[in-house]
Write a protein that binds this DNA or RNA. Structure first.
Lengths: 153, 153
DNA sequence: TATATTTCGGAGTCCAGACTCCGAAAACAA
DNA sequence: TTGTTTTCGGAGTCTGGACTCCGAAATATA
């Protein structure tokens, strides 16, 4: 798996929060329920995003999390970096420490093309774009095919 | 890490074998020693490549492994598929089962670009190219900076 | 044939990521 | 103030990948 489970959960949850419109705090329990993620585990993941300044949290009734910055200012790159770190954007394909222009591995420049493409996509995709896309295409966000947009019922 | 350790060892070992020129069987013990990989562990990895038809093995004195096909016919894609499987080339970024054109995740088409780039590179890079590259650039193949080309000494 | 060399195959250990559980702290509401 | 809701923080369990170890089978060489 490219991204860790934690990272995927963080991305899904952030898209979900963004899709709620930003009116108020969204309780983690509701996110976990809607996205079919373990509540206690999601708690830990969102704590990481909170301490990274991507989410803001509030305890107590009517508490929960909300986006700390405008949706257009949060990129996929931010989320992945906050949870999985930046290794995936900089690492050598063969895992050689210090592989780079000066001391490349045999696959270095070929892998660089792939990595750069990935980095470019991750940096340019905002949570806003992903949330809009979900809404427009009525696209699924979780493993189980289920609606996740603000319930009008 | 993008590729598993097993997969990386398999790639390094195959490049090493290719760089030996294909004269005879190369003992796994020598590969492990030169590349600084656990012998017993490398044994298991190379068994996978043998049963995948990429390497041929022979037991007994003067035994070892050699490439089962011409170096120009073995691609990075073959090696990765044989050891880590093809998931990495087909998987959804968010890990959603069945994510595709019909039921895409919000990041589907963006991720597709990255995945396709990766697949294209992996399919077009041959072990021959990687082995030549190592030789030409006198490039390192292992974590410890050390020569691995046929020892003239 | 006897012996040394080398792969084959299975079983066991170790560790980090994935996930669970529980109590504490904060904050709103009655 | 009291009780309920909710996040915070730590500790524990489980599983799969990474790695080790050992004996068996095959095969070249003397």
């Amino acid at each position: 798996m490219i991204l860790s489970k934690s990272c995927i959960y963080g991305i899904q949850a952030t898209i979900f929060v963004a899709a709620q419109g930003g009116g108020g705090h969204v309780p983690i329990s509701r996110i976990a329920e809607q996205l079919d993620i373990s509540f206690h585990f999601l708690t830990k993941v969102l704590q990481q995003l909170t301490s990274a300044g991507i989410l803001e949290s509030m305890r107590g009734p009517r508490g929960g999390v909300l986006l700390a910055r405008p949706v257009a200012d949060i990129t996929l790159f931010d989320l992945v970096s906050a949870i999985d770190g930046t290794d995936i954007f900089t690492e050598c394909m063969l895992g050689l420490p210090g592989c780079g222009h000066a001391a490349p591995c045999p696959a270095h420049d070929l892998w660089l093309e792939v990595r750069n493409k990935f980095t470019q996509v991750a940096r340019s995709v905002t949570i806003q774009a992903l949330a809009e896309r979900s809404a427009e295409l009525n696209v699924r966000l979780t493993g189980s095919i289920r609606e996740f947009l603000p319930t009008t019922s």
